[in-house]
Amino acid sequence: MDGMQLAGGVPMAGRADDRDGLTLDQLHVPLGPLLPLWPPGLVVRTKLQGDVIQQAAVEVLGIGDARGDAFWLRPGRPLKARWLDASAALLAIAGWADAAAVARRLRDQVLTGTPQAEIAGPIRRWGRQVRRSRTLPWLLTGVGQVPDKPSTPRALAGDALTRLYRWVDSLADPKTSVAPPDVADGTPWAVDVLPSVLEGCELATARLIVASLDLDTDMLTVCEAHHG
């Protein structure tokens, strides 16, 4: 340890080639398992150069200990509430606090059993406001584009903007808005593709990507229980 400089007892950052072939400091920064607006238990171990993720490894903590009881699968938890919840998280990470606050309020109203007739209007108004924003497409287009393969869950296809608009449009559609919770969840697939989607992204984009994939770590415990 003689030659190594120490800052507060912690070794200085090592170095590695970056995407342009320059040798830069490399930091090991874990994202999660606890962060605001982040799927609980998800850990993305990143190698950062500046704020660019060179490498990402994904794991989910605590699956073995969970009871296989997913919040969104309990009775009285319609998909509508989950879409509002996912939209709220994505809008908050995108820095639109007010639109996120409205979505959270509507989600709570759905969960406490506000009648459909009463809440349909406010949800439509909120959806129109989100779809009318011209900044949002400019900021989210092309962010978190997932590979277009047969295995890609239809609910997660496209980029962050497509996914947000899909939630917003489904919420406005009276037919889908009463849908029961979805057991065929995209989370296991999303956890698998996450490292490859995150590599080469900036921290800001990475947070948007994770929020836009609507990862529900509870669902992994359910899948685990199904497999035995």
């Binding site: 400019w138 900021l139 800001a204």
Partner: peptide
């Protein structure tokens, strides 16, 4: 300032 989402640096 409250009516628009955060504009990222590269944009």
């Amino acid at each position: 300032g409250r009516r628009v989402p955060t504009i990222r640096m590269e944009r």
